[in-house]
Design a protein around this nucleic acid. Structure first.
Lengths: 226, 226
DNA sequence: ACCTGAACACCGTTCAAGT
DNA sequence: ACCTGAACACCGTTCAAGT
C-alpha cells in the first residue's frame, strides 16, 4: 500500500515523471536519462512509461516543457521596450540556469509549449513596440532566445561531472590542455585560459551574455531606420 | 584487391572515416551516425574503428574538427576591427551551413581543434584591437561563436528529414501546429508563422543573425567606455 | 599494425497478456 | 485504465584471437 495515495489514484503521471526525469538529467546528464532508468526509479516496468509518453522523444519534450514552465514572466510595466525585454530575457535565463545539462531540450519546444509560446509572444510584442516589423521581430526574437539557451548549455562546467572529484579532474584536464598551447601562437587564448575554462563569476557571465543580446537588438533596430 | 590503393596502404584512416561519418550525419541525422553503420559502410567490422578512434565521443569530436577545418579565415586587412570581425564570423557560418545536423558537434571543439583555436585567437585579437580587455574578449568571443553555431543548428528545417516528402510533411505539421493557435492569444506568432517555420531567405536569415551578433559586440563595447 | 569474431551489458520498442 | 513479461532489433564496448 503506497503511503500518500488512495488505491484509485494513478501511481504515475506525466508531470511527476518529467520532474524526476529532469532530476536524473541534472544529476548525471542527458545520456543517463533512460526509459529503463526512469522506470526503475518509480519501481515500475519500462513499458509502464509508454502509457504516459508515446516514445522517448515525447518524454524529452516533456522535460523541456517542464523547464520552460519555470519561467516567471515579469508583468508589463511602463518602462521602455528594451528595458522590459532585458527583464523578459533575464527571466528565461533564470529558469534555465539550474539545468545546464538539460536546457538544450527547450530549443525545439519554444514554439510548442504554452510557456514557450507565452515567452515568444511577449518577446515579439516588445520588439514590435520597439519598431521591428512582425517578420523581423520573429527572426530577432528566435535568435535572441536560442542564443540565451545556448549560453546556459555552454556554461563552462556544464558538461562536467557532478561528482566533485571527477569534476575537478575534468577542469584540470581542460586547463592543462589550454596551458599546453604555445603562448607565441595563441597569446590571447593562453592569457585568458582561466576565464575560458571557468568565468570568475557566473552572475557576471550571464549578465554579459544578456547585455550582448540586448545590445545587438538595439543596434540592429537603429540600423534599420537609418 | 582494392582499386586505388597498394597493399601496403592502410585501408582506413581517421580523416576518411570522419568525412564519411559527416556524410551520414548530414544525410540522416546524428542518431543515424553509429559505429556499426560507419563500419558497415567501409566493409569492416565495428571493432576495426577502435583502432582509429578511442571511442564514439572521439569519433564525434573528429567530425566536429572536420567541420571546423572548412573555415577559410580571411586574411587580415586594414579595415576597422568590427568590419574584419564580421568577415571572420561570416567565414565560420559559411563553413557550418552545409552541416546543420552536425554543426552542434563543433561547440565543444572550438578550444581544442587547431582550426577552432585559430578562429578563437583571431576573434579575440580583433576584440582586443576594438578595446576589450583580454578577459572580456574571451567571454564576448565565446558567446559570439556559440550563438552562431546555434544559429546553424537551429536553422529552420535543420531537424527535418532529408527525404523531400517526409520533409514536406514535417514542415506542414509545424505549420499546422502554429496555425492551430488562437490568433487572439498569440497574434504576433500566428502572424509570423511562415517566417518562424521557414524564413523567406536563408541568406537573409544568416545575414541578420551575424548582424545581431556584431551589433551586440559594438553596443557592449560602447557601453564599457561610457 | 591492423582487422576479425564472439560475447556482454545495455538501449528503445513490439506484442500479447494480466487485473 | 494501467501495468507486466517476454522478446526483438539494435547499440557501444570488452576480450581474445587471427594475419
Amino acid at each position: 500500500m503506497p503511503p500518500t495515495s488512495s488505491p484509485t489514484t494513478k501511481r504515475l503521471d506525466p508531470h511527476t515523471l518529467a520532474t524526476s526525469a529532469l532530476e536524473i538529467a541534472d544529476a548525471e546528464g542527458l545520456d543517463a536519462l533512460t526509459i529503463r532508468r526512469l522506470a526503475q526509479l518509480h519501481d515500475v516496468t519500462p513499458m509502464a512509461l509508454y502509457r504516459h509518453f508515446s516514445d522517448k522523444d515525447d518524454l524529452l519534450a516533456a522535460v523541456g516543457d517542464r523547464i520552460l514552465a519555470d519561467i516567471a514572466l515579469p508583468e508589463p510595466t511602463g518602462e521602455p521596450w528594451d528595458i522590459q525585454l532585458q527583464a523578459v530575457l533575464t527571466a528565461l535565463v533564470k529558469a534555465l540556469r539550474p539545468h545546464p545539462k538539460a536546457a538544450g531540450l527547450t530549443l525545439y519546444r519554444i514554439l510548442v509549449s504554452p510557456d514557450g509560446l507565452a515567452l515568444a509572444e511577449r518577446t515579439m510584442e516588445l520588439l514590435v513596440e520597439g519598431g521591428f516589423s512582425t517578420d523581423n521581430a520573429a527572426e530577432v526574437g528566435r535568435q535572441s532566445v536560442c542564443s540565451l539557451i545556448t549560453l546556459v548549455t555552454a556554461e563552462p562546467g556544464a558538461t562536467e561531472d557532478t561528482d566533485p572529484v571527477a569534476r575537478e579532474d575534468g577542469l584540470r584536464a581542460k586547463r592543462a590542455s589550454l596551458a599546453a598551447l604555445s603562448p607565441h601562437r595563441y597569446p590571447l587564448i593562453t592569457a585568458a585560459a582561466d576565464t575560458l575554462i571557468c568565468p570568475a563569476s557566473h552572475d557576471q557571465y550571464y549578465g554579459l551574455g544578456i547585455d550582448l543580446v540586448v545590445a545587438g537588438i538595439r543596434g540592429v533596430r537603429a540600423g534599420l531606420q537609418a
